[in-house]
Amino acid sequence: MIDVLYFAWVRERIGVPRERIQTDAATVADLVAELSAREERYALAFADLASLRVALDQELSSFDAGLSGVREVAFFPPMTGG
């Protein structure tokens, strides 16, 4: 089981801020493909990965990163702080 969090417009498109997902996905990209195949709202949110960022256990990471041992995955658009 893995906690998946969504922020900003990714959260709005998917419709929930977080959920717990049962998955055997080996990488972030595999998880994205699995969710996108599951329902249209995921496919819409993940349509353009270049416009998304991913954090694994609260550290910025990449879509080809492995999920082994990861407890929390977060998807969000590029950050606009400051």
């Binding site: 922020f7 900003a8 954090a55 977060a74 969000f76 658009p77 950050m79 606009t80 702080g81 400051g82």
Partner: peptide, 8 residues
Amino acid sequence: LKSRAPFW
């Protein structure tokens, strides 16, 4: 802070 702190 502008592009590495997770604010939107």
